[in-house]
Design a protein around this nucleic acid. Structure first.
Lengths: 342, 342
DNA sequence: ATGAAAGCGCTAACAC
DNA sequence: GTGTTAGCGCTTTCAT
């Protein structure tokens, strides 16, 4: 392994000069700089980031912690953030917290957080108390939907509004028995599933349709397979449904399969709307009606909040709520279609 | 920030004893250990991994470098690897190399690689020459399909065999004009797309059907959207097709949409097979016929190769090829169905 | 414009 | 069982 002092010796300068050259500081003579760079090239020297980090504290790396790599939403999120950081000369690494409180807490240990200049945290298993216990000296921006202590900087979507929009749309297009797939009623600590079930129930109430608890179909993992099975079970159990608001697009994909299993046509027999507007949703057959949370704006906001903290550790916590809009595609009917006889 | 020497002072022992306790070494008295742990708890001390790494070289972290976070294949891969590492007390972080040679080379800089105990590299943009230039002292296992220098440890799939299986199956079920979506004929340096096009053309030849270069539909990004557009273009250009072998499932999803756009039914008018057996593929409507590369075996093999190098830096390079099998689902016809008139 | 000294927080190696 | 010493490779600080 070639070190800075190897380079210094070979170039006949001090380590400090090599360091200055490599960090682009202006206090180095032009010819000295050139000679150092030549030697660096020749010896194949590369900086030891661990040593730099220990001494300077700076890492140039942002950490993104997500519950699961294989939920499409997080893949897309990571991709977007990575692309947005690249031009700033920062660099993203992604960790999976595993969706369990334990693994999430370990991912959030000071030890692990310290390794980053800043952390974007998409936590689902943690509650208020957990988050309140953490006092890292690393800037953190929370991405997500659960309730969090005031002091956190945070970006989230308009969950309730989005769920309401989707459900209203289903009702508007003729659905009367709208299930909420993946919804959860009044949990101990509110989270994505409760907010979105909330929007669903408000839309129903406003339309004069009492929310039927039998139409709340809870999920645990929000995987496609689980959603497909849950729909099958609900239908087998005799639940009558002519519309489904799926709390995520991933879940909606499972619903699409489950409905097909049961011989029901979408949108003729059952209409369907999701939430997230994943890249794939546009390309399903039929295309998935969904709620778009303006991903680009969320990423921009998250990085702005992070940068603010990077520049000023005492920056006031900010709480950004991203607007949502409805994207109508083939899983809901065109306006004016009649209500199906089923 | 609390350091080890703060703990040592408060516990009335030396730093070394604290270090020994925290590393679970057995040369510490029971009461001393207890006292140290109490102080650790009390002060909220957590180890500085950067300092440990600089001193000991060990990081406890494995790096996975993938071209893109938002291709589903890589999300699933990352998830599987992360889960497999957790019980070994190791911990995965994932980086995106961005699919361009430049970004990939920078992700492979010594500086970045050094940060990990080992690296799993899924490179697509690099050729033989690039890979030959890299001489890291970090154990690396290559995951992927391009040609690589002998000295690399490596896990890949049976690309040609898989593509052949899929194409044979399409022919067997009555397809006569089988396109290869995302295929590439004899590129300068072979890669996934060329190997899979190879399997396609061999299957055709063996069936006495000359491979028509007009049925090779190249792709650049292998995204769903690109694949959908490419199918639309091919059909609009008058290409006659009654079967499609898509080089990845992601691409097959785009094909499914493109065929639907053109009013063609799957599998009645056009049959379709993919490659990868993504989690979602089972849940498409219709279910996607595809090639399963035995993901679990690949992950196991990759980690075995990595562990071998971790234990013995001079371990002989090994080259594991994972078997593939055909998974028949709804995008291809049942046996004995007639060839469509179209 | 260049360099010497000190030290970031930890662990390897060796004493006792 | 516990402590002392040295030093990982870099950057901060300060001197020249």
């Amino acid at each position: 392994m070639v070190t800075m002092s190897d380079v210094a010796r070979a170039a006949g300068v001090s380590v400090m000069t090599v360091s200055n050259v490599l960090n682009g500081r202006s206090n180095v003579g032009a010819d000295t700089r050139l000679r150092v760079l030549e030697v660096v090239e020749e010896l194949g020297y590369e900086i030891n980031l661990t040593a730099r980090r220990l001494r300077s504290g700076r890492t140039g790396t942002i950490g993104l912690i997500v519950p699961q790599f294989d939920l499409h939403y997080y893949g897309e999120l990571a991709s977007r953030i990575s692309e947005a950081l690249a031009p700033e000369g920062m660099h993203l690494v992604v960790e999976q917290s595993g969706a369990s409180r334990e693994r999430e807490l370990s991912a959030l240990s000071l030890a692990r957080l310290q390794q980053y200049d800043g952390v974007l945290l998409s936590a689902v298993g943690l509650d208020m108390a957990d988050l309140d216990r953490i006092h890292p000296d690393v800037p953190i921006v929370l991405l997500g939907e659960q309730a969090v202590p005031e002091r956190y900087h945070r970006v989230r979507m308009s969950n309730v509004a989005g769920a309401r929009l989707a459900t209203e749309h289903l009702i508007d297009r003729g659905a009367r028995r709208v299930a909420v797939l993946g919804g959860k009623l009044s949990a101990a600590h509110p989270e994505m599933a409760t907010y979105r079930a909330d929007g669903w129930s408000r839309a129903l109430e406003e339309a004069g349709l009492p929310p039927d608890p039998g139409l709340v179909i809870p999920l645990r993992t929000y995987s496609i397979a689980e959603a497909r099975g849950a729909i099958a079970d609900a239908l087998a159990g005799g639940t009558e449904i002519d519309g489904i608001f799926a709390v995520t697009d991933e879940v909606a994909i499972g619903a699409l399969a489950g409905l097909h299993d049961a011989g029901l046509r979408v949108p003729d027999d059952v209409q369907l709307a999701g939430f997230d507007n994943l890249g794939i949703s546009e390309h399903l057959v039929p295309g998935l009606t969904t709620i778009d949370p303006d991903h680009a704006a969320m990423v921009t906001a998250a990085l702005r909040l992070l940068r603010r903290q990077l520049e000023d550790r005492t920056a006031e916590p900010e709480h950004v709520v991203s607007d949502v809009r409805l994207i109508v595609r083939g899983t809901t009917r065109a306006h004016g279609d009649s209500v199906p006889s089923a």
